[in-house]
Write a protein that binds this DNA or RNA. Structure first.
Lengths: 186, 186
DNA sequence: CCTACCGATCGGTAGG
DNA sequence: CCTACCGATCGGTAGG
């Protein structure tokens, strides 16, 4: 790499925030990750906090894009749920750092950005809930006692994936999606 | 409180580690939480790291106690799974701070303690897996395609509970246990 | 349990 | 993008 871009800095920040946490990452360590001295980062970014905002924003956008695509695809409740699940797995496995930072480090943000994340998560959860309701109505999914709980439990399973799943090994991404789908609908 | 005990310090550390994370908690803030100056904590504890070790050890012991009790209770697979679930919820809801620190901050530990936690978690997961296998054999649970995945997914749901569940509100602890049991076995 | 302090490290700025 | 630096804060110690 000949030059370092603002995006390079944000990506590296995502890597370290995901691995060590926001408070466990210093600007000097982040600089070292890029072959720079810490203070050089301030020509690309105004503050450490701004980096967290950018990484979290990126994570949020990825999840939002995924849910929009899944809902736009149409189909019955079961197939939309399947799309939500595979879309979520794609986000979480192709963008592990931004996704993990979004999921784990948002609590460090100031109240304003934290509330934005909370709202975004609620919309995301609502999409799962809507799809469970749709599937119950159209008969493609078993009726669950409470679609809100079904949504929370499904997201609990999905969000934990980066904590244990490693793409090598016997279980590939499609197997995993299928296993989750059948676990949450069976 | 007239005097501060070592246990008081560990408890307060659990509270702050759970809320702000290990790296987000300074010894001075921890002192303030107890009405002390930061340096006074060193008459109760050798280092900040030692506090994390103690909190995590406590969390691990609680989960271990819970699983031992559930397995000792006997019964068929379904009833042992029910006991594992209610036991886990009891730990996580009655000891939120130690449980959350155990679940979220163990990555900060040195390699040795981190490996201990990993081993303990594997044993814990294995207990869930064994119970799923037992239930499949004795007919009390539907056979799942893969008991290891069933264990991971169930623990994903359980471990996420402190992130969203608030004991006030319409859903009490028994409702929650029942909802989770039926979600993971239905 | 506090005061007084240590060296190290933190986020960030000035100036080039 | 680096050097040189700022005040603040960090984990921790000595001594009482």
């Amino acid at each position: 790499m000949t030059q370092t871009s603002r995006q390079d800095v944000i990506d590296a920040a995502g890597r370290l925030f995901a691995k060590r946490g926001y408070h466990g990452t210093s600007m000097r360590k982040l600089g070292k990750e890029l072959g720079l001295v810490g203070s050089s980062l301030y020509s690309h970014v105004g503050s450490k906090e701004e980096l967290l905002v950018e990484v979290v924003r990126h994570g949020a956008a990825l999840f939002e894009g995924s849910v929009d695509k899944a809902r736009a695809g149409g189909g019955d409740g079961a197939s939309q749920l399947r799309n939500l699940i595979t879309g979520h797995l794609d986000v979480v496995l192709d963008n592990r750092d931004a996704a993990s930072t979004y999921l784990n480090e948002a609590s460090v943000l100031d109240a304003d950005h934290r509330n934005q994340v909370r709202a975004e998560r609620n919309r995301y959860e609502q999409a799962f809930r809507d799809v469970y309701d749709l599937g119950a109505k159209d008969g493609s999914l078993p009726l669950s006692a409470d679609s809100k709980l079904a949504a929370i439990f499904t997201l609990s399973v999905l969000n934990a994936v980066p904590r244990w799943y490693r793409p090598l090994g016997p279980l590939d991404r499609n197997d995993l999606a299928e296993a989750i789908f059948s676990f949450v609908t069976r």
